[in-house]
Amino acid sequence: MADNTEGRVPTVIADDVHIVYRVNAGGGGKGSATAALSKIIRRKGDAPGVRRVHAVRGVSFTAYRGEAIGLIGSNGSGKSTLLRAIAGLLPCESGKVYTDGQPSLLGVNAALMNDLTGERNVMLGGLAMGMSREQIRERYQDIVDFSGINEKGDFISLPMRTYSSGMAARLRFSIAAAKDHDVLMIDEALATGDRKFQIRSEERIRELRKKAGTVFLVSHSNSSIRDTCDRVLWLEKGELLMDGPTEEVVSAYEKETGGH
């Protein structure tokens, strides 16, 4: 990237970040990234039968206040792992992540409770993000309206397990987007829902940026990345291949992969 950073405030600094997770080899697990991440163990000499997966390899970058940064790369390239490290949910094997303010990670698997109503989940999700009960009450109707889940009936009063995956993802995004964040990381949230909801989401991300936040977006939709982000990090096999303006990086990625 061109060096136009003078006077800008860094919000996230990744300095030669390496992330290794350990998988019990030979177990009957499915070997998905999520299953593997859940089996992280302490680094006191790996036990026999434990396979090391080097998921992020020497990634360095600085993010600045007001930026929206897209993360692209093929499946298993380390995008979600890197976001979890920035959020403080995964330890670095070596290197450091520095953040200014509290990073918030929103994924389509964000922990809401299936047996509770959408209404209760709005309250719990808001409290988990550090909002007061009063703030949640003030923004409650905006959250429901933004999610659009009540457009076809009173779904907010039903348990979350009755929702389609798209409805649940829209509610998660709406809860997270109700608060102004220092650093907001969104993992595939815009891939769900209709175009109308995607447009609302993109508008909200632009608002969050104006309020001096930094937004990271992982998406398989290059159009969402183009519409939302001004900078893109391209990861492949855990390594940072390219970091630059959106169109430049996405075009190079599409040329390499034939994606769109």
Rank of each mutant, 00 (worst) to 15 (best):
R209W: 01
D3V: 12
V56D: 06
Y98G: 04
A68W: 06
G58C: 04
M131G: 05
M1K: 07
G29H: 13
H260P: 08
I136E: 01
T62S: 09
D3K: 13
A252E: 13
G73I: 08
G88T: 14
I149P: 10
R65E: 15
N109R: 09
S74Q: 14
T162L: 04
V56T: 08
L105P: 14
R65G: 15
A177P: 01
G148D: 01
L124T: 00
L240M: 06
G130T: 01
E138A: 14
Y253Q: 02
Q135C: 05
V59D: 12
S60Y: 09
A35W: 04
P245V: 06
S164K: 03
R84P: 08
K179F: 12
M167L: 04
L82G: 13
A128Y: 04
R139H: 11
V144L: 04
S80D: 09
F146Q: 01
S223W: 03
L106P: 09
M167G: 10
V232A: 08
A169P: 03
S32A: 05
N24L: 09
A47N: 12
K211E: 14
E151N: 11
A191E: 12
Y163H: 06
N114K: 04
G258A: 12
V122N: 02
Q198Y: 11
G88W: 12
Y21M: 12
V23R: 02
R51N: 11
M185D: 08
D180C: 06
A47G: 12
R231P: 12
D100A: 13
E6P: 00
L184P: 03
E239Q: 02
G58H: 02
N4R: 03
S165V: 01
S80P: 10
R172Y: 00
Y21N: 09
I175F: 01
L171Y: 00
L171P: 03
K179N: 09
D100M: 13
F146Y: 06
A55S: 15
A128V: 11
M167V: 00
D194S: 06
V183A: 08
M131W: 03
L71P: 10
G31D: 05
V183C: 07
Y163T: 03
S74F: 12
G73F: 12
I199A: 15
V17C: 05
L217G: 06
R195C: 13
V59Y: 11
E138R: 13
I40R: 01
A68P: 07
T81N: 07
G73C: 09
S251T: 11
S60T: 10
L217T: 15
D46H: 04
T62P: 06
V183E: 04
Q198W: 09
G148L: 02
R133V: 15
A189R: 02
N150Y: 00
K210G: 14
I13N: 00
Y98D: 13
I149C: 01
K255G: 12
R170K: 07
V249M: 04
R137C: 08
